[in-house]
């Protein structure tokens, strides 16, 4: 599902080497933690997968697509429709309700209204927010907001879900709830890649762990722990 082959990434502006000859293979339906200190290359890896950045060298494949060969005008948007993204800061629009936030994701890729009206309540029910469709983000707890963002990421039934520190702003018990939800999404066949600092979560989940340090892969362990 995901394949990085000898990928290096140097940011030309400051010369920082974010990734250094990294190779990663992730199969369909896997759940993978990317761990490592800040600046080790976790976020860069995720940005390469959605082609927000191009690698300096090496090849990246996602869902069978060679990312360097995708056209900006149609290939890249199509790729991103197959990838759900979740972030530490939720990235919700404050002036839209829960329903509208999730609907926005479908609206802007041209889904018709009847599809939106059918799918949005369904996915919000799935993430446990079936009763808060008309609330605004600032009326929700952090955990609930992250559920909205997961709903938005999953509403178009992506093949891959990328999560960049999804529990970074949440307290431990809420984090556990979010992890349960991500696990649930993974169980229906979605490949999940999650970058995190959260040791307790990694240790509790016992999933595959890829550890990065200064852009190099220093560990790739099935059913691993944080360190």
């Amino acid at each position: 599902m995901i394949s990085l082959q000898h990928v290096s990434k140097t940011y030309p502006k400051n010369g920082v080497i974010a990734l250094d000859d990294a190779s990663i293979e992730v199969e369909k339906g896997e759940f993978v933690f990317l761990v490592g200190p800040s600046g080790s290359g976790k976020s860069t890896t995720l940005r390469l997968l959605t082609r927000e950045d191009d690698p300096t060298s090496g090849e990246v494949y996602v869902a069978g697509k060679h990312l360097a060969k995708l056209s900006v005008w149609s290939g890249v948007p199509k790729l991103r429709r197959n990838i759900g993204s979740v972030f530490q800061d939720f990235k919700l629009l404050q002036d839209k309700t829960v329903f509208e936030n999730v609907a926005f994701g479908l609206d802007v890729i041209g889904k018709p209204k009847h599809v939106i009206d059918a799918r949005v309540p369904e996915i919000l029910d799935y993430v446990g927010l079936g009763s808060k469709l008309n609330n605004f983000p600032d009326e929700l707890s952090g955990g609930e907001q992250q559920r909205v963002s997961i709903a938005r990421a999953c509403v178009n039934r992506p093949l891959v879900l990328l999560a960049d520190e999804p529990t970074g702003n949440l307290d431990p018990s809420t984090s556990v709830d979010i992890m349960r939800l991500l696990d649930k999404v993974n169980k229906i066949g979605t490949t999940v890649v999650m970058a995190t600092h959260d040791q307790a979560i990694v240790d509790a989940m016992r999933k595959r762990v890829i550890e990065l340090d200064s852009g190099k892969i220093v560990r790739d362990q099935a059913r691993g722990v944080y360190s």
Binding site: W73, V76, P77, K78, L79, V108, I109, R152
Partner: peptide
């Protein structure tokens, strides 16, 4: 820019943006 960021994230085409 936030909306635009989300639009790109979910795969809206340049034209749509």
């Amino acid at each position: 820019r936030k909306e635009i960021g989300i639009m790109r994230l979910v795969g809206a085409t340049n034209w749509r943006i």
